[in-house]
Design a protein around this nucleic acid. Sequence first.
DNA 1: TTCATAGTTCGACCTTAATCGAAGCATTCG
DNA 2: CGAATGCTTCGATTAAGGTCGAACTATGAA
Lengths: 227, 227
Amino acid sequence: MKEGPDIAHVAALIGDPARANMLTALMSGKALTVSELAEEAGVTIQTASSHLSKLDGGGLLRPRKQGRHKYFSLANDDVAHVLEGLMGLAAGSGRLRKRTGPKDAALRQARVCYNHLAGDMGTQMFDSLIAQGHLSLDGDDLNLTRSGQAFVTELGIDLAELRKNKSPLCRECLDWSERRSHLAGSLGRAFLSRFEGLSWARRDQKTRVISFSANGTTEFERLFSVG
Amino acid sequence: MKEGPDIAHVAALIGDPARANMLTALMSGKALTVSELAEEAGVTIQTASSHLSKLDGGGLLRPRKQGRHKYFSLANDDVAHVLEGLMGLAAGSGRLRKRTGPKDAALRQARVCYNHLAGDMGTQMFDSLIAQGHLSLDGDDLNLTRSGQAFVTELGIDLAELRKNKSPLCRECLDWSERRSHLAGSLGRAFLSRFEGLSWARRDQKTRVISFSANGTTEFERLFSVG
DNA sequence: TTCATAGTTCGACCTTAATCGAAGCATTCG
DNA sequence: CGAATGCTTCGATTAAGGTCGAACTATGAA
């Protein structure tokens, strides 16, 4: 009857509260087990199992079996991107699930979005990389320039290793709180991982909040000042 | 219980087949009446009315009353953006509602996406504008450069008029068939409108397909060659 | 092997919401 | 003022699917 793909099915998958909670939890980038996701969603394990098989069937998840555990993560960046978009719409229509509190402020400043840095600091880093000419945007392709390659290598990131990964190196991801782009893709993940390795930042396991140390903040500002 | 906005509610709104059909129909950018949308969705007018009030309540639509008609259009570009993203996910998981046929090929080449040009020609135009330096991307802000201003004025687009509009001038929109960006925002709409004014292109009323005339194709290639 | 833990499948219950007929407003036209 | 058209509201029906208890499978540990 209509042209185009069947939106309704995918949207309905995300539209159930329990499943939405699971997907939101997976936005942290971590792979979680069925039991953990059941806990997150506030349902029993049977119910969670049923939901997860549906999400998987819809192509939204990537399952991995390890021993007697089964880990789920988001299928790819596209899924994370759509979820962020939906968060933006929900936030825009004044539908925040929680009052804006101190934790919320922390979330807006720096949080994990599918394993990369999001929030205010995420967009600041992205803008700075563009402004310094380390990233260039041609069409939808985000590319690391020669100066950018030097920059990340200087920071201690192994580019050759990253390129072995089949997923794209650079990618932009729209932030629901800032409504601006931040850096995703394997390089985005490498940045955050490096910040952790340098003890500049630390992830809170439950809330997606990223805390920067005093030193980390200084270094971050030095590298990614917008002035 | 969880941080972040309430995704589930918005997704559930899109997740109903009838509502998804209506939203898909509105992706053409046209404002449609309740009766027309009922027809599109294949439900009675009462049912459509109920759905539309829900979509409106969720902030997805912008209603306008005109005489005894009530017109609905998508609330803003963000909504269109999320819908395109969902189409991408659905298409990716092999969930096309329709076999790939001749009309489908036409859709991939050039179609209307919320009043601007999408499909292969849409992304080609976007890439060309970037490559020619008429558009520049700083962070998530897409800007028209000085040369770009000259370019569109030369084409016969009234920039001053566009700037009066409160919606953003330039904006990128992700294409579900191409998986690349094309130009949205009021300038994107102006381009398509100008193509129609010059009789280069013509919209099919029902299928979202845009047909370019022989002359229009030539002119388009001249302006937006990628070489 | 026996026990424990992780996950899946099955079946029954039950809430939610999509649907449409019928009646009620509102607006336009003659 | 009717009459017609476009849309909304109400109510009853019905279908879909989320939920969990219980039983079952699989992996790992003692």
